[in-house]
């Protein structure tokens, strides 16, 4: 397994380099797309500012606190997306039968697909998110020490883990149907949209789905409450912070299990 990881790291690095070279060859289009993607996410932030010209707070969270939530959602979604670009063409891989080539490689299928295709440009969303988090932290003038920074880093890692898991699960769905995987958008892009605001403002059933089933809300809300020193009407706060890595890890495990189930189905039934 350690040997696999070393090989995988080298393949991933080589793919990244190849992808950068390729994108440089279409430089004009690349720059346009990067600017375009930054505009998409940038204007979302602008909309947030427009909204806060009319109101002081939403569910007890002020403008800069919401900007922080928005930034974290963007970072985590963006990095989760960027890490899993290899899964983008899973429907095509399965449909064309090229997935068989994945299975004749001396590397676990999941790792191979993960490193098969690396696209740099999707990082644009995370850069935008990082910018939002930075300005919000500056405006909030928080009295942070090292432990807060560690919690921030943990929060990012957990968020990325959950989103990456969702993208893997969404790709694994292709083992059953190669039809569009739009359903998972409700949790990935939808999840980011939802956690742009504190989850406490949603009705109980919707909140529960995103806290306990697909914990996009959990890994966003609970660390934010602790970091920004908010009072938590949901009562998740003190214990939840410690549970966050556990929640993210368990969810990733479930997603990987879903992938394994799909693989077993593929190996049993074949194309």
């Amino acid at each position: 397994m350690a040997g696999d990881l070393r090989v995988w790291t080298r393949v991933y690095g080589a793919m990244l380099a190849a992808s950068v070279r390729e994108q440089m060859s279409y430089r004009g289009s690349f720059v346009f797309e990067l600017v375009g993607r930054l505009t998409v996410t940038g204007l979302e932030l602008v909309a947030l500012f427009f909204l806060f010209q009319h109101i002081e707070s939403i569910a007890g969270w002020t403008k800069w606190e919401v900007v922080y939530l928005y930034g974290m959602a963007s970072i985590c979604l963006g990095m989760g997306e960027a890490l899993t670009t290899g899964f983008d063409d899973m429907p095509e891989l399965i449909r064309s039968g090229s997935f068989d080539y994945v299975l004749v490689r001396p590397l676990p299928a999941l790792l191979f697909v993960l490193g098969r295709d690396v696209k740099l440009r999707i990082l644009g969303r995370s850069l935008q998110g990082a910018f939002a988090v930075c300005i919000s932290v500056m405006h909030l003038q928080l009295d942070w020490d090292v432990s807060h920074l560690a919690l921030l880093a943990t929060s990012v890692i957990c968020g990325v883990t959950v989103y990456a898991g969702l993208f893997v699960a969404s790709a694994a769905q292709c083992f059953w149907t190669v039809e569009s995987t739009e359903m998972f958008n409700a949790f990935t892009y939808g999840g980011a949209q939802m956690t742009e605001y504190p989850v406490s403002l949603y009705p109980g059933w919707l909140r529960s789905i995103f806290l306990y089933v697909v914990p996009v809300g959990f890994v966003s809300y609970v660390p934010a409450v602790a970091l920004l020193g908010k009072t938590d009407p949901l009562g998740l706060s003190p214990w939840g912070v410690w549970a966050t890595p556990l929640v993210a890890g368990t969810f990733l495990g479930a997603c990987l299990f879903f992938w394994r189930l799909g693989m077993r189905r593929y190996e049993g039934a074949g194309g």
């Binding site: 190849a18 390729e22 064309s96 039968g97 090229s98 068989d100 080539y101 098969r116 295709d117």
Partner: peptide, 11 residues
Amino acid sequence: FGQRTQLWWDL
């Protein structure tokens, strides 16, 4: 495998 590719399409 004939008619499928193991090569990276854009490279």
